[in-house]
C-alpha cells in the first residue's frame, strides 16, 4: 500500500537524519585513532572523559532548558560562583557533604530565579541569563576581592575529583550518574514529557493541562544545579575556589547540546546526545592537540562543527 509505506519511510528518514551527526563523529574519532599517535589507549579515553566531565554535567542540565525552548547563558558564571561559595564554606570548616548540598541548593535557587524572571516577566531567557552571567561572575570576583580560596578538605576533593571507585575516577562517575538521572528524568518520567510538550508547543501544552511556567522554572533550576555541581568539580580539581574557573564554559556547554542534536527551537533533543556532543568536543580538542594544532584553531573548528551540526539537525 502506498499510503502505509509513507510514514514508514518518513520515520526511517527521520532515523537517518537524527543520527547522521553521530556517523560523522564516529568517522572523525576513527581518523584520530588511525592517524594520531597513541590516541587509541585506555589512558587517552579516561583523560578525555575526565576533561569533558564538567561540560557533560552542565550540558545535561542545559538540555532541559533548551528543550523547553529557552537558553541558559549563566551556567559558566554560576559554576565559578558555586566553586567560590563551596571553598568558602569549607574554609569555615563546614563538613564537605553539607557544603556540597548547600551549594547545590544555591545553584538551583539561582536557576529558579532566572526561570521566574523568564516566565513571569516574559523577558527572553537569552537576556535574563546574560544578565545573570554578568551578575554572578561579578559576585564570584567580589566575594573575596578576586582572591582564590584554597581547599584542604580531602573528603571534598575525593568526592568531586580525585577519588576513584571500582577503578574509575570520580568525574567519570559523576558523568555516568548524572547521565542516568537526566535520562530517566527526561525520557522516562512525566516531567520529561512536559518538558518536550512545553518546548514543542506551549499553547497546546497549556490546553493539555501542563503548567508551562512551572516546567520552565524547574528546568532552569536543574540547569543551575548541574552548573553548581560542575563548579564543585572544578574547585575540587584545582583544590581551590577561583572566581574565573567557569568563565566561558557556557559556550562549550551550549555547543555540546547543539552538536548533540537538541534543537534551539525547543521540543526536540536528548540527554545522551548532549553527553555525546560534550565528549565529541573533548575528543576533537584532544585529537587536534595530539596532531599539533593550536587551541585557537580548535576554536575555529568547533564553530564550524556547530554550524554543520545545526544545519544537519535542522527540521
Amino acid at each position: 500500500m502506498k499510503s502505509s509505506s509513507m510514514p514508514m519511510r518518513a520515520s526511517a528518514m527521520n532515523f537517518f537524519r537524527d543520527h547522521i551527526t553521530y556517523v560523522i563523529f564516529l568517522a572523525i574519532t576513527l581518523y584520530f585513532v588511525l592517524f594520531a599517535p597513541h590516541f587509541a589507549s585506555v589512558s587517552t579515553a579516561s583523560a578525555v572523559l575526565r576533561i569533558t566531565a564538567i561540560v557533560s554535567v552542565m550540558a545535561i542540565g542545559m538540555t532541559f532548558v533548551i528543550i523547553c525552548g529557552e537558553i541558559d547563558l549563566s551556567v559558566g558564571s554560576v559554576a565559578s560562583f558555586s566553586g567560590m561559595i563551596g571553598a568558602l564554606l569549607l574554609d569555615q570548616s563546614v563538613p564537605a557533604y553539607v557544603a556540597a548540598l548547600l551549594v547545590l541548593g544555591a545553584g538551583a535557587s539561582i536557576g529558579a530565579v532566572s526561570g521566574v524572571l523568564v516566565t513571569k516577566l516574559r523577558i527572553p531567557s537569552f537576556l535574563v541569563t546574560l544578565g545573570m552571567l554578568s551578575i554572578f561572575s561579578g559576585l564570584a570576583l567580589t566575594i573575596t576581592g578576586t582572591r582564590p580560596v584554597s581547599i584542604v578538605d580531602d573528603d571534598f576533593s575525593n568526592l568531586f575529583w580525585n577519588g576513584s571507585f571500582l577503578g574509575m575516577q570520580a568525574p567519570i562517575w559523576w558523568t555516568i550518574v548524572l547521565t542516568a538521572v537526566g535520562y530517566y528524568l527526561l525520557h522516562q518520567m512525566p516531567y520529561g514529557r512536559r518538558v518536550y510538550a512545553t518546548g514543542g508547543n506551549a499553547v497546546a501544552a497549556r490546553f493539555s493541562g501542563v503548567r508551562t511556567d512551572g516546567v520552565k522554572i524547574f528546568a532552569f533550576a536543574i540547569s543551575g544545579m548541574t552548573a553548581s555541581l560542575a563548579g564543585l568539580m572544578l574547585a575540587a580539581r584545582s583544590t581551590a575556589g577561583n572566581p574565573s574557573l567557569g568563565a566561558g564554559l557556557e559556550l562549550d556547554v551550549i555547543a555540546a547540546v547543539i552538536i548533540g542534536g537538541t534543537s534551539l527551537f525547543g521540543g526536540y533533543g536528548s540527554i545522551v546526545g548532549s553527553v555525546v556532543g560534550a565528549i565529541f568536543i573533548g575528543i576533537l580538542g584532544f585529537g587536534l592537540l595530539v596532531l599539533g594544532l593550536s587551541t585557537s584553531i580548535q576554536e575555529v573548528i568547533k564553530g564550524a562543527i556547530i554550524i554543520i551540526a545545526v544545519s544537519l539537525n535542522r527540521r
Binding site: 514529557r193 518536550y196 510538550a197 514543542g200 508547543n201 499553547v203 497546546a204 501544552a205 490546553f207 521540543g267 526536540y268 527540521r315
Partner: peptide
C-alpha cells in the same frame, strides 16, 4: 497545528 499537536512527539 497551533493549539493541538506536539509535532516532535
Amino acid at each position: 497545528k497551533v493549539e493541538g499537536i506536539f509535532s516532535t512527539l
